[in-house]
Design a protein around this nucleic acid. Sequence first.
RNA 1: CGGGGCGUAGCGCAGCCGGGUUAGCGCGCCUGGUUCGGGACCAGGAGGUCGGCGGUUCGAAUCCGCCCGCCCCGACCA
Length: 562
Amino acid sequence: MRWSKAFIPTKKEVPKETESVSHRLLLRAGLIKPLAAGIYTYLPLGWRVLKKIREIITKEMDRIGAQELLMPALTPSSIWKETGRWEEYGDEMFRLSDRKNSEMALAPTHEEIITTVIRDEIRSYRSLPQVWYQIQIKYRDEIRPRGAVLRARTFIMKDSYSFDRDRKGLDKSFSLHEEAYRRIFSLCGLTTTEVTAPIDIMGGSESKEFMIDSPSGEDRITVCPNCGLASNIEAISTLPSKANFKDGELEKIHTPVPGSVNEISRFLGLPPTQLMKSLLYMKDDKPIWIVIRGDYEINEEKLKREFEEIRIASEEEVKKLVGASIGYVSPIGSNYPVYADLSIKGIKGLVSGANEDDYHLKGINPERDMDIKDFVDIRIPEKGDLCPECHTELSWRNVIELGHIFKLGTKYSSSLGAFYLDENGKEKPIVMGSYGIGLERIMAAAIEQSHDERGIIWPKEITPYHLLILNLNASDSKGVALAEDLYRLLGKDYEVLYDDRKVRAGYKFNDADLIGIPLQIIIGSKGLEKGIIEIKNRKTGEAEEVPQKIAKEVVNRLWENL
RNA sequence: CGGGGCGUAGCGCAGCCGGGUUAGCGCGCCUGGUUCGGGACCAGGAGGUCGGCGGUUCGAAUCCGCCCGCCCCGACCA
């Protein structure tokens, strides 16, 4: 491709508030163009990258015996109502109606649709297993799109679905996908971390995410430096960091400051860890106590999972039921049931409210002083927490989720009636798995992982072009002749972008570094006289001076070694 | 949904507080010339419903109200 004819709208400036590296570089290098919040056009250069990623994925999916198909993005509401996700998905589903006023949705995912395909067509154990996949645009009305394509409202997803006779079959399909995903990300030039993941709206049992480190990532994972246990923080029950205080007698102390953990801890000169937060909740309209160590916060989701219908008591309720203000209360001397977070277990010498305004109790020994009904895990993990397996302090990383694989089980096959007949003529629900990869996220992650202050440095596997020929002086006829020759010669084996524009050298160098083609072939008048060209490695910045005649051999060698 | 920022030429921004000629600047674009190995320079030129609607006023980019859109943080969610 000649740059003079190509549409590559590079930019010197992008809005200053675009934060993430990939967001800025995707815009500056002319890979994407925003249409609306979270909706992007993929410009020619960006689309070339996505097509490369698509090819890699297709090849690896085919390798594990998956078959490609394509389902419609426009779907009737009836099918979502059968599984309950018409309601469950909420505002995140784009909804519309057709001319007859039938409700429709733009599919955010395709479990329902694919399950109807198999339920109508496959009735025998002899036809299983099956693995089907598609690469297609998904529609999700995200609460807050961000980081350009990192969380978009329309995005390209490879989604595959496995159909097996039993759990054992599912395990096989799942591990085939694990293998395929490992190969895909590695073939895209990326280093991923595999973590256990939460289950949430997809349903099912086991799930695993493929993550890549990035400060722009929205997800956080913990990795144990000792035993290697890796998990999304939403899917792990960590152990609280260690705390040990001197046991003592209960004693009332005057604390004439606001009753927040920070204020009390500063006033008493004690670490927040030594405080016990006492919170009054209403479960089924009856008060219960929840206590947690002062340096932790409650995870409302976990709380709901543990107690179902529960809400925090209002200020007035606390005053009425306990006789003191929020911040000065505790279960000690109160008869309501007490549930303690695991962070409270085994520690003594704590401080909490005295159930009297402006007073606290010190020397609290929870297991001595309170009638604890149960210990529960309801806190948000914090840095410093320990590995539940080997008790080592976990390390925390910010990551981008690139892929997610689920063992769904029979949730969708049962509710949609996808059954098969086994060897004994007995009807059984098909056991399913579902597996997804975000293509744009791979593109963005590659940029996040590989760039410098001058621009993108593409991994060779997904670079939009292999080689960039820079003819520095487009009006020097000797240089043009040489560039044209090389363009033809190298074009036989490589995808070549040829910068033939009549602009100054500096301009070309800057654009070249910005769009990040891994090898730059530089033709300038200086070298022409000596019969040499330069071949520069974008990543290392090293330039090799090469006699024109052996240019191709050197390119071959450098390309191999990239 | 809460908090913050923003919306003025294709892109990036100033002007707005204290309303008043023809709304500026940089980049980009067009024409001509000089330059030519890391985003050149000179001269000339094209390009604007100042996000929208309404109000105040002799007069609104500027003040007031409502709405729309974009970015960032959080909540939320995959």
